[in-house]
Structures are given as C-alpha cells and as structure tokens.
Simulated assay, not measured.
Amino acid sequence: MKNIFLLSIILLSFSCKAQQAYPLDTDYDAIPNYSYLKDTNNELLPFIGTWKAIFDNKEIIIKIDKVDHHLVDYVTNKFYRDLLFMRYNIKNVQGTVIKSTMNLPVTEAKIKSIRLFPNQVLSFSYSGGDCRYGWGDVSLKLIDATHVKWRYQPEGVILTNLNCPNGTDTTIYLPETNNLIFTKQ
C-alpha cells in the first residue's frame, strides 16, 4: 500500500508542469496562457524610484515601483509579467498639491509599463483621469543612471453627459510635452 501511495505522489509531481518563464521582451501572443514574462536581466531596475521635474511652474514627482509576477488578463491571453507602476504628485508654485495618485495602492496606479524597447525607452499606458480623460501613452527614455526623458501624448476623448456626468474634472494634470527631463531623487 505504501508503494502505491509513493508511486502516486511521484506520478503526480511529474504531471504538474512548472510555470514557464520567458524573457520580458517575449511576444505574449507566442506564449501559453499563464506563462511568466520575467525581467531576467533586471532591465526595469534603472527606472525604479522617485523622479522629479519642474514643468510650467509645477513640481512633478513620479514614483515608479516594480511588481513581480503580476497577472495580466487580456481577452484572449492571460499571463504573468514583471511590471512597473507609476504614481504621481503635482504641486503648484506655492507647494500645494494639485493632483496626486500617491495614495493609491501600487497596482491600482493608472500608469503601467507595457514594453521596454532596445534603446532603453520604456512605454507605459495611462488609463486617464475621470471618465478616462487624458488617456494615452507615456514613455521614459533612460538618459543615464539619474535622468530620464519624459514624453506624454494624450488621446482624444469625446465627452458627453451620457458617458461622463456634469462637473467631472476634465483637467489633464500630467505634463503634455516631449523631452521633459526628470532627475532621480
């Protein structure tokens, strides 16, 4: 009886497949569901931290955190991926906070990494503010260990009373610019 039990455990362990890890730049369409796109070469590491810039008389602080093994659930693909999430804090000249997402849990930040390109440009998607207003693409280009170049391009949104109630904040707070230099703090 012991032998049958032991044999059952051995067979069960062989039948369980270990989760396959792939490099971060692997096309997620080419991997099985529930695979893992892992930052095997620590390519995301230089972007992690707190960064600061001044734009249009406003202090912009972004905080970038890494979450390992985060589930990405697309309609046709489900996989795990090491991701960066970006939260921000924007202050006016008087030091008053105009807008902040720093109080959000890391994985609820509205800006998350999509892809790292070979030229050290990290692309993020921004789901926008209220009613998705300002949604678009953010990218950071690593200049050196303490500087990144920011680019933000919001997409157009048509707001109506049907899809967004009156009184909704439709201000775009993120700096709408290319080539803004952030310094690591």
Rank of each mutant, 00 (worst) to 15 (best):
T50F: 02
G134I: 04
L116V: 02
N77C: 03
I62L: 07
P32M: 10
R151S: 13
V67T: 05
H147S: 01
N77M: 07
E59D: 03
W51R: 00
N77P: 00
V121M: 11
K110Y: 14
L142D: 00
L84Q: 03
L45T: 09
D25K: 04
Y74T: 01
S13Q: 09
N57D: 09
H69S: 13
F79M: 00
K149A: 14
P175D: 01
D29W: 11
W150S: 05
L12K: 05
L116A: 02
Y36E: 04
N119Y: 08
K110F: 14
F79W: 01
I143K: 06
A21W: 12
S15C: 12
F124L: 07
E43P: 01
I172W: 02
G167C: 03
D73F: 02
G128Q: 12
N89E: 13
W150Y: 11
N163F: 05
I54H: 02
Q120Y: 13
I10K: 07
F124K: 07
L142H: 00
P46Y: 00
Y28V: 07
P165T: 09
N92A: 08
T107R: 12
G129F: 10
I60W: 00
A21C: 12
F79R: 04
R132F: 15
N119H: 07
P118E: 04
C164S: 02
Q20F: 08
M86Q: 09
N57W: 02
D130H: 03
A145R: 06
T76C: 02
L142W: 01
L45N: 14
K63I: 11
P165M: 11
I64A: 08
L84M: 06
S139V: 11
A53D: 04
K141T: 12
P32F: 06
V97I: 15
S113W: 04
A21K: 14
K149W: 04
Q19E: 05
L7N: 07
N163T: 06
L71G: 00
F182H: 00
D65H: 09
M1V: 10
S125P: 10
